[in-house]
């Protein structure tokens, strides 16, 4: 399914890079071709020409972007721009929406995740997800974290399972707060704790990539700060793709940033460059608060 368009697209970043220093003129907002550095040297995930349709309505158009190892990629853009839709393509959560249709190619370490041979259970174990609203299961804290290892058979015995639960909670920075209440319901924790519990639940199965869909939008600033710290720590071991409405958050936590606008991926690049010197007029307008 590799076509010419794709080949052209792969070449393009080099071009734009050439143009970058000598082109202070912004690309106009009628042009929706992606600008900036789409590819990376050693990607863990590559997506090429991804289109998503809900029935006949096209939600995202021709999105191509790579995700590197041990990086935080943030996706920003106004509401309804398709960033969450795109995120949900990366672990096939869109499969649960009956009207959703995905075309193009999305590969995880060279294997097409939409291939018939790809098992969605394995995929989701490798590409975990943290949702906008903390959604711990109405079970105990322990059971929440132990659930993934249990269904995937990752622990041979109880002590191994205990260890996984403790490590995951420690990594999520929650252990000290919940070690005495592991048997209490996870839904009884505070909002920020619940979200960290969900992150612990996610890393308990040791995924390669963690997708976060506006993980802090339901949290207060202090809880948000904790999660952001956590994201930075988790980068040592995982690739993280985070959708956020807060530009400051994107600037704080991510190495690369992708800007989406009405279903198009407008611009991708190093976070520092995107925020200081966006090439596309739409990106600049959004970042300077002219809309969105």
């Amino acid at each position: 399914m590799l076509n010419q368009k794709q080949a052209v697209l792969l070449e393009r970043p080099a071009k734009t890079n050439d143009v970058l220093p000598s082109a202070p003129v912004k690309i106009q907002d009628t042009d929706t071709k992606t600008v900036g550095q789409v590819t990376v040297d050693k990607p863990i995930m590559t997506t090429r020409n991804v289109d998503v349709y809900y029935d006949d309505k096209q939600a995202i158009r021709n999105v191509s972007i790579d995700i590197a190892y041990n990086e935080v990629l943030s996706m920003i853009g106004p509401s309804g721009c398709g960033k969450s839709t795109f995120l949900r393509c990366l672990n096939r959560m869109n499969d649960t929406i009956e009207s959703a249709r995905v075309t193009g190619s999305i590969e995880l370490e060279g294997h097409d995740i939409y291939d018939k041979k790809t098992d969605v259970v394995t995929l989701r174990a490798r590409v975990g997800m943290v949702f906008q609203k903390p959604n711990p299961f109405p079970k105990s804290v322990y059971e929440n974290v132990a659930y993934g290892p249990r269904i995937h058979g990752l622990a041979r015995n109880q002590s191994e399972l205990d260890e996984i639960v403790e490590t995951s909670l420690r990594r999520a920075g929650l252990w000290d707060e919940v070690k005495d209440r592991l048997r209490e319901p996870g839904t009884g924790l505070s909002g920020g704790q619940q979200q960290r519990l969900c992150i612990a639940r996610c890393i308990a199965v040791n995924p390669d990539v963690i997708l976060m869909d506006e993980p802090c939008s339901a949290l207060d600033p202090i809880a948000t700060a904790r999660i952001e710290e956590l994201i930075d720590e988790l980068r040592q071991n995982y690739s993280i793709v985070i959708v956020t409405h807060s530009m400051q958050q994107a600037a704080r936590v991510s190495q690369r940033t992708a800007y989406f606008h009405l279903g198009d991926l407008i611009e991708v690049g190093e976070t520092s460059i995107i925020f200081t010197n966006p090439q596309h007029k739409l990106t600049e307008d959004y970042l300077t608060g002219r809309f969105g």
């Binding site: 394995t122 959604n135 299961f137 969900c198």
Partner: peptide
């Protein structure tokens, strides 16, 4: 049953 619970489970790789 809220969809968030289903998504949480599916997101963990539950069948």
């Amino acid at each position: 049953v809220p969809p968030s619970i289903r998504e949480g489970a599916l997101g963990m790789g539950a069948s």
